[in-house]
Write a protein that binds this DNA or RNA. Structure first.
Length: 270
DNA sequence: AACGAAACCTGCGCGC
DNA sequence: TGCGCGCAGGTTTCGT
């Protein structure tokens, strides 16, 4: 999926395109995407104006007059803004008809994405919002250290846990661990206070740079139609199996950590 | 508490 | 060309 920088890129693009518009009609072609009441989803957003688009971690929030639509894109969710008359593809599962002859379509080949609708005044006290941890730049390094140093599990898994720190996914975790020179298989319990601080700093550095470059485009991900990120040019380890490490020249390895493909420089990362 | 595997889905590239 | 397998930027659930 889009990780934090990709979701932020989508948020920015979408803000320019749809804030101020109203919903005229909603077509829910694959109902399982919506996890709250489906009738409420289809009926209650009609005639509400889109006030703003927000983000926390990898979640996107379309804020309406009264309600908020919470969206998680998971692996392959995307939005397209199209002409009303265009023929939807079989992967466009939700269609929002806007009051200007345009449609906003939710496209998701694997159908993993989720949507929830809640009233504006309560959504922050309810799942899934409630469990989203602070983003790297909101994290206090010593609080982060306290959260991980009791855990006898691999640091990569802890960094991927959105209840501990939000925004990192498989690509940016690998890049963060490389930047912090920490091996993904190290256990939380073995991470020192100084290393915990380094991890937070590296995550901030990597994510901020990725946001500036509009995210990472590998495989087929794009923020909106035709919008491609440029961070893939900055990747140091992810997708670099067999290539020499930029720092020491040692061959980058691909290993499996917690079931995820993981790229590591076994010389720099200890 | 923590692990791996499976589940949710589909498509792509690979070797045969 | 076709088939089977492994893999994919996420997360939850289930069994051990």
């Amino acid at each position: 999926m889009p990780e934090l920088p990709e979701v932020e890129t989508i948020r920015q693009s979408l803000s320019k395109l749809i804030v101020g518009k109203k919903i005229q009609r909603i077509e829910l072609r694959y109902p399982k995407i919506v996890k709250t009441d489906k009738e409420y989803f289809i009926q209650n957003l009609i005639n509400q104006k889109i006030v703003s688009i927000e983000r926390k971690g990898k979640h996107l929030f379309i804020v309406f007059d009264k309600d908020v639509l919470l969206i998680h894109l998971r692996m392959e969710g995307r939005f397209y803004l199209k002409e009303k008359r265009s023929i939807p593809s079989k992967h466009e599962h939700v269609i929002f008809y806007l009051t200007n002859d345009q449609i906003l379509t939710y496209h998701d080949v694997r159908k993993f994405g989720t949507m929830h609708v809640y009233p504006k005044d309560s959504y922050q006290q309810i799942e899934p919002y409630q469990s989203i941890a602070d983003e790297p730049w909101q994290q206090d390094p010593s609080v982060f250290f306290e959260k991980i140093h009791t855990k006898n599990t691999e640091i990569k898994g802890l960094l991927l846990d959105q209840r501990i720190i939000s925004g990192l996914g498989n690509i940016y975790v690998d890049e963060t661990l490389f930047h912090a020179r920490i091996h993904p298989r190290r256990k939380g319990i073995d991470i020192t206070k100084d290393e915990a601080k380094r991890l937070i700093e590296s995550a901030c550095y990597i994510l901020e740079k990725a946001i500036q470059l509009g995210g990472t485009t590998i495989r087929t991900f794009e923020a909106m139609e035709g919008i491609h990120g440029r961070f893939q040019n900055e990747l140091c380890v992810h997708t670099k199996k067999g290539q020499p490490c930029l720092i020491c020249g040692h061959e980058i390895q691909k290993i499996k950590v917690k079931g995820r493909g993981t790229y590591v420089c076994p010389n720099c990362q200890t």
